[in-house]
Amino acid sequence: MKISVSRFWKNRGTTLGLAFFLLFAVAPIVWCLGYALAYSFGLAGLLSAGWTTKYWTQAITSGELPRSFLFSAWVALAAIFLSGVTALGLVLGFRRSLQRGAISSLIYLPMALSGLVAAFLVSRWLSGAGLFSRLACAFGFVRDPQHFPSLVNDSLGWGIIAAHWLLAAPFFTVMMLQIYETEKIGSLRQLATSLGASRWQSLRRVAVPVLLQRSSTNLLLYFIFVLGSFEIPLVVGPQNPLVISMLTRRKFGLFDLAQKPEAFVISVVYTALVLFFLLFIFRKAPAHE
């Protein structure tokens, strides 16, 4: 009797759990996408006047939307590439140093920084009057802030890339250190060496592919995260071009209500892109992950 009562509650619990999940995780996203689609086609909002594709045409032909997506993708790719290369270099070159003594704890410190704080730090280091400019002046490389190539609010987004690198490099380093241990890459390399591979070959053909393959999902997820980041570009990003989140926020917050539907066009395109990347991750991941 006890078992059947438990089963009854267990089944009801599963139904309740799924209902809760649908209500608080799925429904908000469905609402967001539905509302954004309706707004972008003129079916919702204060100035809605029925079905129209003019906001989509406006957004695409103005050039702002493609420019913003290309710029965001460039920033995300550069940040992930630099962070990944730094983490790979540290793990493959200095793994033992990273696993012993105080450094094994200190490596977690930069991960305590938020995007906003990282952006603030980068602005204090890389701006025209920042710390690096002062150092360059002290060594006689520049005479005043104007001569220092400021990397903050620049059109290529180096400030954004630097701030993301500051946050992501320690995270990927810790992650790859764990992968190195769990995948027993040390033993695999030893095996490769005993079979005649050189040290460089064991690195290039064994360690790097395993590390990259095992961290590819997280690298891709981080790419999506950087693609939609807001705080960092707000502090150290350029005004033209704008990253996706900033462009959406600007179009949404403008006094000109006619610009609002374009914010939802961007939201729809961005969400579709995120869903595409997620589908790719899910198709790629093995069944047990």
Binding site: F21, A25, I29, L227, G228, F230, I244, S245, F252, T271
Partner: peptide, 26 residues
């Protein structure tokens, strides 16, 4: 399991600002 986990990923990876803009009206 897999489609439901896929749905769980969406709110977590989507940009908070874009999510905020779209859900504000609700």
């Amino acid at each position: 399991r897999k489609p439901l986990l896929f749905c769980a990923y969406i709110p977590f990876v989507i940009s908070p600002v874009i999510f905020g803009v779209c859900i504000l009206f609700l």
